[in-house]
Amino acid sequence: MHYTICDYMLDISQNAIEAGSKLTELSIDQTGVSLSVTVADTGRGMEPSELSRLQDPFFTDGRKHPGRRVGLGVPFLTQLLSQTGGDWRIDSRKASEDCAEAGTTVWFRFNLEHVDTPPLGDLVWTMVQLFTFDSDYELTIYRRRTNPAGNECSYVLRRSELADALGDLDSVASIGLLRDFIASQEASELFC
């Protein structure tokens, strides 16, 4: 099983990239009591019959991992949300005459006050991993935090801008600098 909320976030975001999404948007919105995550992609999308089987741990599309008999990422997540007073919704569409663009949107919200909700995990490191996946894709991360006093801080990160600044996203030097850059965005005097 995955352990931290970041593990689930990484898994669902990877699904988007592996579905061939050329533009994926990840929103992470945190208050003192809840953490909401939205992963919206422009990948190949799902038919209603596939969407209805997402929570089946023995359902997989057969393309991503041809020899595999299980698809555990979504069942892991929805089971945990059910056990911890969270919520979730998944919408998906294939390209059609009425809707030119295919894609999937996964939204989930964790109740941070529930005793069984796992820790967030290392969000900086998770974002580094999401940006350095070995594929050609654009990823935009919108991050927002609101402290109990109602003060808010936010930032936006785009893979194309980071790749432009660093030159590459797979050398140890670039990954180290990327980590430092994201850590500087995440650090805020409001949350010390």
Partner: peptide
């Protein structure tokens, strides 16, 4: 720690 800008990141990488 102050927020790093993309320009600063570019210079560090170079």
């Amino acid at each position: 720690m102050g927020k790093m800008t993309l320009e600063e990141l570019k210079k560090l990488r170079a």
